[in-house]
Design a protein around this nucleic acid. Structure first.
Lengths: 229, 229
DNA sequence: TGCCGCAGAATATGATCAAATTATGCGCTG
DNA sequence: CAGCGCATAATTTGATCATATTCTGCGGCA
């Protein structure tokens, strides 16, 4: 695993923050699938840092639900079951449209253009079958949109939900590629350009529901792969 | 500050977990008002433990929003503004009725009786003007109810919201006592006893809205105390 | 099969270094 | 001569690491 490079003092973040971000990206886009064990020593050796910052990053990720205690002081990437996905659906539908509504009320045309630019890169990644690019740009689109809302608490909640969902989403996308990944981003941007907050929120809800429905179909096929369901 | 007592090995929890619970209770029921600084060394000296577990507890509480970074690596109890309260209203209304709905579907008569017992203690605390008792029993009522729902993710989210709200709630209750603290607990229990999940969820939404409205009135009066608003 | 010991991993502490806030004192100005 | 402001020192606090201790799980052995 790659070490953590020293930054030129200006962008110098605490080590525990760097470890946190590194592991978070590993969960969202990288090589940490559901069920994978995460050890303190593995991270200290892999990232060449002390164990105190690693412990802090793991505690934080655990508190956010991105990692979970395996009972006997082991931590691992959570494996979602149907119940967990049902909970995530409800939470995402409850929170993300509201963030969209708030973002719509304050978004400038520049903000919308920036979102459109991200969405273009997303479409490019889809057309090229670039799974990692799709995951990253889709994440950036939603995060950038939510950042406009000036609602730090709801934004934190939304980011936590993405962190819980990320590893499982990555698995099915890695397995089935970027085909048939419809999104409502165009509808969201159109509504935002018109300043129609309700329509934007509705489109976001549809985006979330569509995305999870597609995820659920693939997840179901994956889980029941060869076995009789 | 009191030290952490050694438990008889059966209920022996990790030190960082004990510190976490101690600070959490201090936030919900104790002596940590919004704006209060929380220092690592203060906790290590006050609780007579090392600094690593304290750091972990603080990271966890920070990730949950119960504490917040004050910019230059200081942490303190967050001070809620109108925007934050607006976000918390939306999140609580989005999540807690759903937990109530799910709890209602699986609650036994024994569960409901246990909730009624907590509610009785809550009424007693109110009638006696016992602010701390009110805060504790109200918290226990909601937490016990949500625990029935078998929805760990939504439950975690709800607990996080309570943790964000607790310190401010405690301030206004400490200032204005337990008078005029209406709740919908009786309506919730009635609906649950009849197995009417929708009515229970509706009652919970009303409970949340009423509680926050009352909080908001008192908070507003407190903030505008003697000054011209 | 059940028990014991060993390797590995997590927990917790204290020491050390760096950063920031607070305190102090000197010079300047009215 | 008294009060104010800024620079510097001292203290407090946070960040990181190295190390000792404890616990878990596994594999060998009776």
């Amino acid at each position: 695993m790659t070490e953590i490079a020293k930054q030129p003092a200006e962008t110098m973040l605490p080590v525990h923050e760097q470890v946190y971000r590194r592991v978070r990206d590993l969960l969202l886009f990288g090589e940490l699938p559901p069920g994978a064990p995460v050890t303190i020593q593995g991270l200290t050796e892999g990232l060449d840092v002390g164990m105190t910052p690693v412990r802090e990053a793991i505690r934080r990720l655990t508190a956010e639900g991105a990692l979970s205690f395996q009972g006997n002081r082991r931590v691992s990437v959570p494996v979602l079951d149907a119940g967990a996905i049902s909970e995530l659906i409800h939470a995402r539908v409850a929170i993300e449209p509201e963030l969209t509504r708030r973002a719509c009320r304050v978004a400038t045309s520049g903000d919308i253009a920036a979102l459109a630019a991200i969405d273009d890169r997303l479409d490019l990644a889809i057309s090229q079958g670039d799974v990692r690019g799709y995951l990253e740009q889709n994440y950036r689109f939603h995060l950038h949109l939510y950042g406009l809302a000036q609602a730090p608490i709801l934004q934190e909640l939304a980011e936590g939900l993405w962190l819980r969902f990320g590893p499982s989403l990555r698995v099915v996308c890695g397995r089935y590629g970027t085909q048939n990944l419809p999104d409502q981003h165009k509808a969201i941007l159109t509504a935002m350009a018109q300043g129609d907050a309700s329509a934007a929120a509705k489109a976001m809800e549809e985006d979330v529901r569509q995305g999870i429905a597609q995820f659920w179909r693939r997840w179901h096929k994956l889980a029941c792969g060869g076995a009789a369901c």
